[in-house]
């Protein structure tokens, strides 16, 4: 049983590292999704089945999908990969590694001496439900207000007269098709290729 935990944990960590180092953004997203699924398995191992399900459905299923949609809309392609390659130098990892190291030391220091293992069973969804409707009722309401705010904000930010741009975008793609003579237009074909 514990083996599954370690494997899932390893998958989560490895795929996160891979996500951080990918050049192509869609690859990174996909690796992130894998990482989230790994964490969901870990949750299930801990007996928190409700959160495991929620992780898969909401996090990996909705939030990540939103990410993928937006990335696709931005039409990021080879030029961006080039940019990423320039940025992802080894030297760039120094700061984050130091900060992460400090945090790790803090966490280890905090959980030192805590020897108790996992108790039997886990927390049932029913318990969580009772907690949600009981003491954390206000939190639920606030979370819904937050989601409403996020909704309105996203709507407002995203609103614009999109007709002209979309039309121009489509027209560019048509041009691209006509120029290359192929039906499939590779992403980034409507922008000049990056030099140097």
């Amino acid at each position: 049983m514990e083996l599954a935990f370690y494997i899932a944990g390893a998958v989560a960590v490895v795929s996160t590292v891979l996500m951080l180092t990918r050049l192509h953004i869609v690859h990174a997203l996909l690796y992130l999704i894998v990482s989230l699924l790994g964490v969901a398995v870990v949750f299930y191992m801990l007996g928190a089945s409700l959160v495991a399900a929620l992780e898969v459905i909401v996090y990996a299923g909705a939030i990540m999908v939103l990410f993928v949609f937006v990335v696709m809309m931005l039409n990021l392609g080879a030029p961006e990969a080039e940019m990423e390659k320039d940025w992802l130098t080894p030297g760039i990892w120094v700061g984050p590694v130091i900060l992460a190291g400090v945090l790790t030391i803090e966490v280890l220091y905090l959980v030192r001496g805590s020897t108790a293992g996992l108790g039997a069973g886990g927390v049932e969804p029913k318990q969580v439900g009772i907690a949600l409707f009981g003491p954390y009722l206000i939190g639920v309401e606030l979370a819904s207000v937050l989601l409403l705010a996020g909704l309105v904000g996203a709507y407002h930010l995203g609103y614009r007269k999109i007709e002209k741009r979309e039309i121009r975008h489509v027209a560019d793609i048509d041009e691209g098709r006509a120029a290359t003579g192929r039906d499939l237009v590779l992403p980034g074909a409507d922008r000049p290729a990056r030099t140097a």
């Binding site: 900060l99 400090v102 945090l103 803090e106 220091y109 905090l110």
Partner: peptide, 9 residues
């Protein structure tokens, strides 16, 4: 990170 360190230590 600094804040956490200060708070915890």
């Amino acid at each position: 990170v600094l804040l956490l360190a200060v708070v915890f230590f």
